[in-house]
Amino acid sequence: MIINSINNLKSGLKVTFKGEPFLVLSNEFVKPGKGQAFSRVTLRNLLTNKLIDKTFRSTDLLEEANIIDVNLLYLYKDNRQYIFMNEKCFEYIAVDRKILGSNVKWLLEQTHYVVTLWNNNPISVCFNNFISLKVVSLNILVTGDRIHKSYQLATLSTGVIVKVPLFIKVNNVVKIDIRSGEYISRIQ
């Protein structure tokens, strides 16, 4: 679908620019006293996550990107690909490890994730900011900082090791902030 005018770009719209998908973050329409009107647009590349600022003439056209978000069930890992399934049509989608990035350590089997598809190819997987995981084992006691807190190292069900308070026991379920990898609370 072609957008009639650059002036119609709104924040949140996904467009194709130079053959790649971009998310419009902002659009500032400028009509100078002399000359042709133009727009200053800030775009985020959905493949590389880089920001670009671009100036478009008011007569320029951009194509709307063929991007959809689909709720998929994560099934298993196969070499460097992670297999997800659309439960509505039982279609399998393989996601490459580089798309998951460092979040791969938080991936749980039999859990739903929102996968973004561009022209039916996965380009990103959306993770919740918080995850609840079971403590599999506890290790070495770690002395804390200036306020003299002590921690123990817990190995979680995904294999990730995090610092947890001393009252956490094996088989407890803990809430972790995946953005920082830090313990938040114990789940009762």
Rank of each mutant, 00 (worst) to 15 (best):
S5E: 07
N7R: 12
N8F: 09
K10E: 15
G12H: 08
L13N: 13
T16Y: 00
F17L: 14
F17A: 08
F17E: 05
G19M: 02
V24Q: 01
S26N: 02
P32L: 01
P32F: 01
P32H: 01
G33N: 15
G33Y: 10
F38V: 05
F38P: 02
R40K: 13
N45T: 10
L47V: 04
L47I: 02
T48S: 15
T48A: 09
K50V: 09
T55N: 13
R57G: 07
T59P: 03
L61N: 01
N66K: 06
I68R: 14
I68N: 12
V70R: 10
L72A: 06
L72G: 04
L72M: 14
Y74E: 03
Y82F: 08
I83C: 12
I83W: 10
F90P: 05
A94W: 00
I99Q: 01
L100W: 06
G101I: 03
K105P: 07
W106L: 07
T111Y: 04
H112F: 15
Y113K: 04
V115I: 15
V115C: 11
T116M: 07
N119K: 15
N120I: 01
I123D: 03
F127H: 05
N128W: 00
L138C: 10
D145C: 08
R146G: 14
I147L: 13
K149A: 12
